[in-house]
Design a protein around this nucleic acid. Sequence first.
DNA 1: GAATATATTAGAATTAGTCTAAATATAGAT
DNA 2: ATCTATATTTAGACTAATTCTAATATATTC
Lengths: 144, 144
Amino acid sequence: MKSDWSSSELRRRGIDAVLNEHGVNVTRQRRIIADTLFARNQHVTADQLFEAVNSTGARVSKATVYNTLGLFVRKGFVREIFIDASRTFYDSNNSRHHHFYNVDTGDLIDMKARLVPHFIDQDLPEGTAMDAVDLVIRVRNKVS
Amino acid sequence: MKSDWSSSELRRRGIDAVLNEHGVNVTRQRRIIADTLFARNQHVTADQLFEAVNSTGARVSKATVYNTLGLFVRKGFVREIFIDASRTFYDSNNSRHHHFYNVDTGDLIDMKARLVPHFIDQDLPEGTAMDAVDLVIRVRNKVS
DNA sequence: GAATATATTAGAATTAGTCTAAATATAGAT
DNA sequence: ATCTATATTTAGACTAATTCTAATATATTC
C-alpha cells in the first residue's frame, strides 16, 4: 500500500489528484492539512501542525489532525519519527533518508542518504518483511 | 561518563561494586532494581520493571523506578529504546547492537552487531559529537 | 435525492511520565 | 557512635500526548 513518492511530486501534481489516486477521499480538512504539511519538507509535531492549520483561519479539530496524520502515515505520505516518549515528529519528506537529533538543542536534521545502511531481507527475523528503517543518530554539542 | 560494559560483567562483578565504581550510592531500592533488571539481557518497560520488582515482595515506588532508570541511562548501564509515543523500553544489554521491532506482534528483537552501520565523526552536524546510534528496523509478519 | 458509508468534532478518558514537598536514609565529620 | 548535611525515596498531584466516544456533518452510491 505504501508508495514511494516525494512531497515535491505531490506539490507538482496537486493534492487532490494524489489523494484520489490512493483511494483517499478529499475533504476540506484533509486538503488544508496536506497543503500545510507538504508546503515544504519539514518535521512537525501533531500539535505544531494543528496550530499551523488553524492559524490560517481554517477550523480543523485536533482529533482530525491526529486522524489525518495516521491516515497519511498508513498511506506512506509522511514518516513518523519517534524521538522520545513526548516527541513524535511527522516528516513531510518521505524519501529514503534518516535523522540526526541534537539532544542539546532539540534540532532534528536530515541525514544524507549515502549514510543510510542497507539491509537484505535474509537478515530479517524469520517470517517477517521490512516495514521501515528508522535510524536516529543522537548528537550533543561539542564542548570546545 | 558513559562506560562500555556488559550486563554479564555486572553480574560477574556484583552490582554494589559496579555502582560504587561509577559514583552511584547503593541503596536497597537501587540494588533490587539492578538485580531484577540485570538478571538477564531483556527489554522491559518502566511499568514492567515496577511490577517485577514489587512482585518479589519488595516495596519500591514507581517514582523510584523512573528515577533509577534515568540514572542508569545517564551512567550508560541501560539503553532507552523509543518505539513509539507509548512504548519506551529499557535494554539491560548495553553492548553495541540494534533492534528489530515486529509491529504485528510487538516483539523487540536484538539485531546482530555486524548489521550495524558505522559513522564517522566528520559526517555529524558541525560542532556536535555522537551520543548514540538508535536503529530500529520495523518489520511485519509476512502474509504467506 | 434518499440511503448508506465515511469523516469530523468536542470533550472525556487514558496513559506514560514528571513534579512536589515531606519523610527517610546515607555518608562524612567529629 | 552521634550529629549534620546531603542524597534518596515516596505518595499522590500534575501534565501532556494521544485515543476514544458517540453525536453530527459531509460525501458517495444507488
